[in-house]
Amino acid sequence: MTESQNIEINLDVVKEGLKLWIDARKGGTLFDAERSAAEYNEARFQLREGCFYDY
């Protein structure tokens, strides 16, 4: 997993041009598991429980 401070999720499947941005308020709490998510049947984006995020 790659640690990230913010991520952008493309939601074109819902409505063209729609995007969701998530910003972590504290480092080390937001991750992109692009490489391993499918292999382990997990969600690509991982948020740490009990932490705060801006959407």
Rank of each mutant, 00 (worst) to 15 (best):
N41G: 04
E49T: 13
L30I: 09
N10H: 04
L30Y: 07
S4N: 05
E42K: 05
S36L: 12
G17E: 04
Y53F: 15
A38E: 13
E49W: 03
D23H: 11
R48A: 15
N41P: 00
D23N: 12
L11P: 05
G28A: 05
V13C: 04
D32S: 13
K26Y: 08
D54R: 13
L30D: 06
R48E: 15
A43P: 10
A24N: 04
A37E: 06
I22L: 08
D32P: 02
S4A: 14
E3A: 08
G27L: 04
F52M: 10
S36K: 04
S4Y: 03
T29H: 12
A43T: 03
F52I: 07
S4G: 00
V13K: 02
I9G: 03
R48P: 00
D32E: 08
R35T: 13
E39C: 00
S36H: 05
E34Y: 10
G50V: 01
F52V: 08
Y40E: 14
A43M: 09
I9K: 08
F31L: 02
N6S: 15
T29C: 11
D23A: 11
F31A: 06
A43G: 09
L30S: 07
E42T: 11
L47R: 05
Y55K: 03
L11G: 01
G27E: 14
I22M: 03
Q46N: 09
A37T: 01
S36R: 02
S36Y: 08
Q46R: 13
E8R: 06
D23L: 10
W21Y: 13
E34L: 07
K15C: 01
I7D: 05
R48T: 15
G28Q: 04
V13F: 12
E16I: 02
R44Q: 10
E3V: 01
D54P: 00
D23Y: 15
E8W: 01
L47K: 02
A24D: 05
A24E: 02
L20S: 05
E39R: 08
F45I: 12
R25S: 14
D32A: 04
L47Q: 09
L11Q: 10
F31Y: 14
F52E: 14
T2Q: 12
E16N: 11
S36P: 01
D23W: 05
D32V: 06
K15P: 00
D23P: 00
N6M: 06
F31W: 12
L18G: 00
V13A: 08
R25N: 15
Y53A: 03
E34K: 12
G17N: 08
W21Q: 13
R48I: 13
E3G: 07
G27D: 13
Y55N: 09
K26E: 15
E3K: 04
V14T: 07
R25W: 10
Q46W: 10
E39F: 08
W21H: 09
L47F: 06
G27V: 00
L11H: 07
L47M: 15
L47E: 02
N41Q: 14
A38M: 03
A38G: 12
K19G: 00
E42I: 09
S4M: 09
R25H: 13
I22N: 02
W21I: 09
E34Q: 12
G28W: 01
I9N: 04
E16M: 02
S4T: 11
D23G: 04
Y55A: 15
V13Y: 11
A33F: 14
L20E: 03
T29R: 10
Y55S: 10
V14F: 11
C51G: 00
R44A: 04
D54V: 12
D23Q: 13
W21C: 05
A37V: 01
E16P: 02
E49S: 14
